[in-house]
């Protein structure tokens, strides 16, 4: 049974070029959720990007769970109507079981992320 936990992160909204050129520490996961928006976990309150108007805020609006690849693939194959990226690691987002989900796919495991209000629905649908 899938159990999702709250993800504490930092959300940065900045120009695409500022996000492209930013350097991130190796111990952080950085999800580029839009051209001008990134989500970094664990949080990084002192994140610096080269955009004077960048918005940097704490974000705990998502929840996620790590799954080993051999568990994740059959689940996603069933619940996903679009093609997963082939490179590793890779970030992807779209409808999973009818819920707006984000995926961080590593070589042997996958982080499933959904907006926190959808957690119960998502767990039920993926069960």
């Amino acid at each position: 049974m899938l159990a999702l936990n709250r993800i504490h992160a930092t959300r940065i909204v900045a120009t695409p070029s500022a996000l492209d050129s930013a350097q991130w520490p190796d111990d952080r996961l950085v999800f580029r959720i839009a051209a001008d928006e990134a989500l970094i976990t664990p949080p990084m309150a002192n994140a610096v990007v080269s955009d004077p108007y960048a918005i940097v805020v704490a974000d705990s609006g998502f929840a996620g769970a790590w799954l080993p690849m051999e568990e994740a693939l059959p689940l996603l194959e069933h619940a996903c109507e679009w093609e997963l990226p082939r490179e590793r690691p890779a970030f992807a987002q779209g409808s999973v079981a009818g819920i707006p989900a984000k995926l961080w796919i590593e070589k042997d495991r996958v982080l499933l992320i959904v907006p926190a209000p959808f957690v119960a629905d998502f767990e039920e649908r993926m069960a």
Partner: peptide, 12 residues
Amino acid sequence: CPHCGPRPVEEF
């Protein structure tokens, strides 16, 4: 989607 890739219309 230029950022996310091809997706079914129901996502939009």
